[in-house]
Structure formats: C-alpha cells, structure tokens
Design a protein around this nucleic acid. Structure first.
Lengths: 304, 304
DNA sequence: CGATCGTTTGACGGTGCTCAATCACCGTGG
DNA sequence: CCACGGTGATTGAGCACCGTCAAACGATCG
C-alpha cells in the first residue's frame, strides 16, 4: 500500500504501476475485435470488404474516479471509449482543475496530444468505464490495413472538433441559466445519439464539474437547476434530470451575445427555416426575473 | 459563363459564382506545390522519400471580410491557410454571430464538418488571405500517396483539437481582464510560433470579435485593454498591441475557477516548477481594484 | 450509525452588462 | 479642399446577476 518507493516516477506512463499501487485500476480485462470498436464508433461495417475486422484490440477497464492517463504523461496510446464516460481535466499551473469536456462511448481520447507526444489533459472516469487501446505505434499500420477504421477515426475526430465548437457555444451564453440549459440540451442530444432516452438523464458528473465546464460557480449551477425546475422546464432529483419541456428549454438556451446588427456583412446563409419571431424568454418564473438582454428584444423587434 | 443560370443554388459550393456576383473574390489565382503546403504546416520534408511533393494544389485568394465558405454549405473542400487569417463564426439560429476561433497560416479549415458534409461555421477572412484547397474527394488518395501529407494533416488536426482546449481555458477565466490577458498570451504564442514578434502584435480582428470569442461585451474588452495598459502590462494603440511585461501579463492571466481543494483526487502531476507563493495580482493599478478571488489566496496559503 | 462529501439555500458585495454619448478614422461626394 | 455619414473604439452611469462566504441539509459508504 505504500506508493512511497515509486513516488518519484509519478507522471510515468506505466499504468500497471498505477493500478498496482493506487488501486485505481486500469488493468486489462479482455480483448475485443476491431469490428466491435467500429460499431461503437457508429460506423456501419457493411460496405467494402471487412477483411481486417477480426484484429484483436486490448481493452482496459477504468474504475470510477481513476485516471486513464495523466496530464504530462507521454502519449503512447490512443483510446476509444467503449462504455461509461470520462472527463478531460486540465490543471492549470496553480493547481486548479478545469474540466474541458465529457466524453462518452465512441469518442477518441488522446488525439489532441499526438503532435506533442505528451498528454495535455487528464482523463478521469466518471463511472466504471472500458476503453479500447490503440498504440500510437500501430496507428499508422492499422489505418493502412483497415480503411474502415481510417474512416471511423476521421469521422470521430471530425465530430470531436465539431463538438468543440458546441462547447464554445456553451460557454458563450451570457446567463448562467442559459448555459445550464445548453448543457442539458447538449447532453440530451448525446444521449439520444447513443440510443438512450433524450429526456431522462442521469448525470454522471458532480455539480462542480458541470460548473467548471460551464465556467460558473457550482452554487450557481445549483441555483440554475432550481430556476429551470421552478419554470417547469426540467425536474431534477439529485443527479436525475427529467426534461419536461424540451422546447422551452431550447428557448431558455438562446440569448447569445454579440449582436448581429450586421450592417454590410452578408455572411448569413439563406436559412429559410429559422424560427418565427417569438419572445426569447417566457416571463413566467415565480420571481419574475430574467428580463434583461434588451439587445435580443431590440433585434427581434427590428426584424418584426 | 454566366453565373445567372446557377443563381438558384445559393449555398452551392460554386465559389466562382460567389466571386462573380458578390465581388467578394474567392478566385483562383495560381497553384502551388504540395511541398509548399507542407512547409506552411510546419512539417520538415526531410525524411522519407519526397516523391509526391510536386503535386500541384489550387490556391484561392480571399478578400477581407469575404467568406471562404458559409455555414450550411456543403463541405466539398478542405482548406489550409497559406497566408493571412480568418475567423470561424457560427450564427446561432436567432441571427447572432458567435466567433469560435481565429485561424492562421498552417491551420486546417473545414475538417470539423467532414462527418456531416455541411459546414457548421462560416469562415470570414480578417484580411487578404490565401488558402490551399484540397477537394475532399481526393483527400483519401492524397493521404495515401503522400505519407508526409498524412502526417502533416494528423498533426494539424491534433494541434487544432489541442487549441480547442486552450479556447475553453480562455473562456473559463473569471475576470474579463484575465480573459483578455489569456487571449493576448495565446495570440503572442501563435505569432511567435509563426516566426513573428511575440510582443508586438497587430490585431487583425475588431473588438467585437474578440469580445465574442471571450464571451464578454465589447465595451468590456475596451475597458480591459485600458486596465492592462494602466497596469503597464501592455501598450495599446488602436489595434497595435505591445506586450511590455509578459510575465506580469501571465500573472494576470491566472485566476481560474473551480477550486482544487482536492480531497482525495490525486490527479495532480508532479509539477515542480510552479510559481512560488506570491500575490496573484499586483495591486498597483491606479484605481486599486482586482482584489477578489480569495479562493486563490486561501489555496496558496494552505500550501504554504 | 457516524463521518465525509455533495448539494442546496441565504446574504452581501462587486463586477460586468446595458444604455448612451463622445471621439477618431475612413471613404465618398460636394 | 472640407463636409458628411458610417464604423469602430473609448468612456461614463446605473443596475442586477453572479461570485464569495457561510451554514444547513442530504446522501453515500465504511
């Protein structure tokens, strides 16, 4: 139980070490076929010749609150989440942890660190999770041997970049309620994409992690939860969240910043299916708050 | 050819149409060798056999404020910035523009939209810029023919994912001054990486775009600029920014949110070179502000 | 059953958002 | 040449949301 002897090589990539000393297991349990991974990555393996899909891949199991890898450790392995969920955390120098993203099944971990060779984030499991392991050494040959994997990887990375934009949108919202609403919508969409229920969510992360991702205080997250609940948009019982009024939640999620008074920049694509002019927030809260953002109303009245 | 006949397919990928009708030129001017692009992408083409590096690629020129592509248009081309800079903008339904990123030479545009086939952002040139064009059709064959390009692309995407994390850190800062400081540091690092001066910056974007990226009001950006200038950290004249005290700026950029009071999560890598305990912000501003974030002091005193 | 952590709620103070006016800069046209 | 409208940038005033501190409640686990 004494990790004292090897304490000086913290930050090494020896996961066996971590699993042995810290009990935060990252042991190999079984292997899986490449086809299984492609299935998780939402690639239909029905075109082309499935020649290499029987290649075996190691699978790791990560216990709750355990780290799949640590910030600063060398990136010698890429991971694809098979089950469960993790959070990517960056501890910024002075010791504060910033949650960068939550990842679920089918998502790739570690790709952002490839060009440096060192992980820039820590990946902490929010629950007991399993991941496929892909040594970076064999990454090239694997892509060459299996075009399907190559395509799946490209799509996964594309999705990841895309969702990074969503994250920016998340934090760009002004009001804390809107941020939380966007987060719930984002989570709902992810659950739906994974085949789960879109309105019955079970949060795997604590309030503080949500707060960190959203860029607010964790008390504010609590308050925003009760706000949304008071408005009848959601029903929240601890970490179980029911989305009662998805459309209303989507309404609350609007209110971005940065007026598009536009002027001469014709960068608007011909979008014909935008929502008709409607009030950006329904003032039916008990305390009758949230009536700011006059710019929104101003702009909308201008268009009307 | 008269582009009138194709006017009904606005949102089509016909850039010639746009260049002809809107006068916001995106015309092809010349071609370039693949080796040139790899050079911009910071890949040393000195190992392996440079067999395919003479492949010619089309180069487009984008005028200032012109769109390289629009949100919603089909993604049939990938772009690599050769010179200049652009901003990626997502107009979120109600017409508000959210700046997601600023991109410069060597960076890839459009990869995040590959998996959907439609661009999720608009790319607007901040100045006269040139880009290499890579048809997605020939993307696979090009990667297969040129392993060097494959490697360069992978590295570029990895960098892009990495900087997405930096963006999240940008917006995660609490105080507006800290956000702006982080932005300036980020920009300085980018300029330095591009071989430019690290302390003499010329902002290509307007205050409003910075504000949008940082998630604050554009007036706040102005105020933060004067704040940093009053502290002697920077000297700002319109869009010309001189970084006078990089270390002080880095100090102002600290102050993250989300306390790492930690408890039982040993996810901290052994960082031996953190700054010694010191006051998080020097109180030498004229108005003597910015003395909040007691959590920082609390944590620091705890470690002492 | 008790200890620890997560969650919630309250109160207070401050920062940043909104509105508004002013100035600087630029291209156009008189 | 200067007047003029337009955009961008700066500054000020007022207000309220949110961060901090504090305490209480609840849940989970040994």
């Amino acid at each position: 139980m004494n990790p004292v002897t090897t304490a000086h090589i913290v930050g090494s990539n020896d996961r066996q070490f971590w699993s042995a000393t810290r009990r935060r297991l990252v042991p190999v349990t079984e292997q899986a076929r490449l086809a299984d991974m492609l299935h998780v990555m939402q690639l239909d393996t029905h075109h082309g010749e499935p020649e290499n899909l029987s290649t075996m891949l190691p699978v790791w199991c990560v216990r709750k609150d355990a780290a799949l890898f640590h910030e600063g450790s060398p990136t010698d392995t890429l991971y694809v989440v098979r089950s469960g969920s993790l959070k990517c955390v960056k501890s910024s120098e002075d010791g504060y942890h910033q949650v960068l993203s939550f990842v679920g099944p089918g998502e790739v971990l570690g790709f952002e660190s490839l060009h440096r060779g060192k992980h820039r984030t820590s990946a902490i499991a929010l629950e007991v999770s399993t991941v496929f392991a892909i040594p970076v050494q064999s990454l090239g040959s694997l892509r060459q041997q299996s075009p399907l994997f190559d395509e799946a990887l490209q799509n996964a990375i594309s999705r990841q970049l895309d969702s990074a934009g969503d994250m920016a949108e998340l934090m760009a919202a002004v009001a804390a309620d809107a941020r939380l609403a966007r987060f719930l919508i984002w989570l709902s969409a992810r659950m739906a994409a994974a085949g789960q229920s879109a309105h019955r969510l079970r949060l795997r992360m604590c309030r503080r992690d949500i707060a960190s991702l959203l860029g607010v205080a964790h008390e504010t997250v609590s308050r925003s939860f009760t706000n949304l609940a008071d408005e009848g948009l959601v029903q929240v019982l601890n970490r179980d969240v029911d989305i009662l009024d998805a459309e209303g939640l989507r309404l609350r999620a609007r209110c971005t910043r940065g007026v598009a008074d536009d002027g001469a920049a014709p960068i608007c694509v011909p979008q014909a299916k935008v929502a008709p002019p409607r009030v950006p927030a329904k003032p039916r809260a008990s305390t009758a708050r949230l009536n700011w953002f006059p710019n929104v109303e101003a702009s909308e009245s201008a268009t009307a």
